[in-house]
Design a protein around this nucleic acid. Structure first.
Lengths: 186, 186
DNA sequence: CGGGTGCGTGATTGATTACTCACTGTCAAG
DNA sequence: CTTGACAGTGAGTAATCAATCACGCACCCG
């Protein structure tokens, strides 16, 4: 059009950009709270083309959620790798630190929260379960910790989500401190 | 006009019915996923009148959320009362059982999940924090348990939410069992 | 009786939004 | 150069929904 050298991209490159935009925007406003137009704007393409790349908003959200869990798994793997000690509990501790560092920007965490809330949509619920399963399995296998320890790992991870979504980390009142003390969430 | 009756006036009766309907319907479909019309239908009144009783959808949701936490507090109090032993840990255990029993129908739990997801709306975030604060404070004061124990109580409560929203209690796969074993969620 | 006060509603409105369609522009192979 | 496949879009459409408005109806006090 106006641009003489309008280089066409491959659809896969665009798809990637759209998924990344979707992660950010859905994380900020949730599934129902985010118009596809917002995703398109952030990816700097037209809304119509987003629908060419992803047949529906739902499938776009699922793609973003799946990517979210991929990133989390990678971070856990990296954290485990960097653990000095290879005993179960130290590995779990290292993974916890890696996760805490990862969710510093709130994006991956909020996407999970919104996915949970949107679990009324069967495809979203399934994707969330798949992601959770992969995390639990990975943590269990990689750390070789007891079931109880893995359960505790996830439980305190959920507590970390609660702390972050409600902004308790910036709260110094006594009740907030009860929840936040000792929990690494940067 | 000075005083009609010592008992609730008609509009307050309606307001009460609307709040109860709102709890159920918002729990089922979330804040953005629920039209006010659905609340009205369930309360068997017109949509217009719902807006006379509550000035906006947002305030209606907040009212439902506040009621949710009131019910939870009452259940925790009752659970603590029924504890045979008055030492901190037994009281916590009794409260956990009471909470698990309470959320058997998923309504109060789902409302919390949806509130967390809708915390982008400042008034909803504030209400959620108030509710959480009241729970934490009550648990701490009533049980007289250590901060660490209270923190663990909440963390495993959040795990319980995760289990229920994803339907893990009906899942017998090994990864699901890691999360569910020993968690009371009926 | 008359009239005021508060309960209650059907119809509407204006904004938003998921998704579609008809279309233009690009590029590489033959 | 032509062709055809693919990248990309502006302009819709049909549906949904928060919120309002104009209006009745029941009851009660004087």
């Amino acid at each position: 059009m106006a641009n003489r050298k309008a280089v066409l991209s491959t659809s896969n490159v665009r798809r990637e950009a759209v998924v990344l935009s979707a992660m950010t925007v859905f994380a900020a406003n949730g599934y129902l709270g985010t118009p596809v137009t917002d995703v398109a704007k952030r990816a700097k393409i037209s809304t119509a083309y987003v629908f060419k790349l992803f047949p529906s908003k739902q499938e776009l959200f699922v793609a973003a959620l799946e990517r979210c869990f991929e990133v989390i798994l990678a971070a856990l793997a990296k954290g485990a790798e960097e653990s000095a000690d290879q005993a179960p509990e130290p590995i779990l501790f290292a993974m916890g630190g890696a996760y805490a560092a990862l969710i510093a920007d709130r994006k991956l965490l909020l996407l999970q929260i919104h996915a949970q809330s949107a679990a009324g949509v069967p495809e979203i619920a399934k994707a969330f379960r798949r992601g959770l399963a992969s995390v639990v399995n990975f943590v269990k296998v990689r750390s070789n910790a007891s079931d109880e320890s893995v359960q505790r790992f996830i439980a305190y991870g959920q507590l970390c989500h609660l702390i972050t979504t409600t902004g308790l980390d910036a709260d110094t009142s006594s009740w907030a401190s009860i929840l936040t003390t000792g929990v690494r969430h940067v």
